[in-house]
Structure formats: structure tokens, C-alpha cells
Amino acid sequence: MTKKQSRLFFLISTAVFTLVFLGLTLHSHTRFGELTHADKMSAQVVAGKDVWHHNNCINCHTLLGEGAYYAPDLTKITQQRGEAYLSAFLKDPSKFYSEERHRRLMPDPELSDTEIANVIAFLDWVSQIDNQGWPPRPILVSGATFPGTNTTSASTDSEPAEAQRPASVAAGERLFNDASTACSGCHSIAPGVDLAGPSLAGVGERADRTVAEAGYTGEADTGEGYLRESIVAPSAHIVGGERFSANGISFMPTHYGEKLDSDQIDALVDYLSTLK
């Protein structure tokens, strides 16, 4: 190869690939609107993006998987946490996490109520971007979906017990731990381990007592009815104080009634009833 040929190689390959790249970029612009639901990019979403930038959130968190690795990815966070929870969290993260336990804590971002609402709207818009289905499996902030860790009891460890359990209980447990339902992202079944939701240790037993109590505000008459109600209408009766709710609104997401079919809800109730 002579120097002239090598120069030609450089010039041609650079020109060709630059042109292809620019062409595809132009084409992408015709698709961005649809893929990102640009029509839903309200003024609030755009204002929320500014909140995101001004507070340097990207240098602790990842969003769409890009950013820093010190804090959890937030791409789908609004699908795992309700708005009520997120606004309470952003008002004071230290009420929900402790540095002793997880060795790191989000500093209070000192946002106004409007800024909080905006940034949540922004995150909600991001969560709906059509991004090839990433992440392939939901990324949880805390909690566990497999046995042998300190946030779940090792209930699936013993084979004989497994065999005797009704199929719906096993299905319920799988659903509870399944990362797309993500109950376990908020609820541990170990006693005393409160995550974003209260520990559900003994909830099967507790449910019967709850409906009998004078302070019960829901509409169920049985323990099982209460468990069902807790899933489809979390705010009907609220437990656990200000860490788990604000102004009578539970921090538990409200979408399970639509997201799960009735068999799935039955299975979850069957499973929760076994937690004694």
C-alpha cells in the first residue's frame, strides 16, 4: 500500500460512514416523537427535566441506564412506586432509608412541592419511553426476590413443605417475589424488616384481627377480604403511620387492581394468608 492509497482509504471510509450516520440520524428524528410519546411531554414534564438537571441527580443515579452507579436506576421507578410514595420520599429521603442499614443515603434534595411534582411527572414520562424493553427484568431499589438473604424468610427451602402447599399458594409466592409485580420490593416477610412498605410477617393472622378492630376503615368482613382490599384499594384502610402514608393516601401503588387478573389476586391472597 502506498501513502496515497492509505489516504484514499481514510478519506473514503470516513466520508461513507459519516454520511450513513447522518442519514440514520435524520431518519431517527422522524421516529423520536412516536417512540418517546412526545405528545405527552407536557410543560410539567419539561420543567421536571430541568429539576432533574439542576439537582445533578444523574451523578448519583442512572436514568435509561446512563449516569452514576451510586444509586438505583430510575428508568421505571414510577411503575414500581406510586406518586404518593415518591413525593413523600423526595421530601425527606431519610424517613425511608437509613445510612446504618444500607451504608448510603440520598441527601435531602430540598425541592419545593411543585418541583417534586414536576420531577415525578418527568420520571413518569421517561418510564413510558419505548426503549426496547430495557431493563429486561425490573431493577428494584431494595428488597429481595430470592431465598437465603436477610430480607425474605427461607420459606421455599424445604422441599417436603413445598409439595404439600396448594398450587395457588406457590403461584402467589412467585407473583409476590416476581420482579415485575415487585411486592417484595416494598414488603419483606421477615419480622420487623420494614422496607418502603411494612413487613408482612404474620399478616395472614393479623388480617383477621384488623377487620375486627374498631378503627378499621375499609369494607371487608373477613381477613381474606382485607388482604384482597389491601391489594386493590390500598387506601381503604391504612396501617403503619406516616412512614407509609400521607393525608390518608397509602404509599402503596394503586394499579394492582387493573394490572393483575382475579386469579392472580386470589393467588396472592392465598399466599399472604399462609404468613402466620
Binding site: M1, T2, K3, S6, R7, F9, F10, L11, S13, T14, F17, T18, V20, F21, H27, S28, R31, F32, L35, T36, L64, G65, E66, I129, D130, N131, Q132, W134, P135
Partner: peptide
């Protein structure tokens, strides 16, 4: 200098369209 051309040519041949390895999950076609 002859090989420098070749190396830079190779860099651009792969690197320009290689940008797309950052596009996978961000909402692009």
C-alpha cells in the same frame, strides 16, 4: 504516516456507527 492514515481510517470506519452502542436502550429505532 502511511499507517497513521490506515489507523485513523479504521477508527472512523467502526467508531462513527459504533456510536449506536450507546443508543440501544434510550428510545431510538
Amino acid at each position: 504516516e502511511k499507517w497513521l492514515y490506515v489507523i485513523v481510517g479504521l477508527v472512523f470506519m467502526a467508531g462513527i456507527l459504533g456510536t449506536a452502542h450507546h443508543y440501544y436502550w434510550t428510545g431510538v429505532p
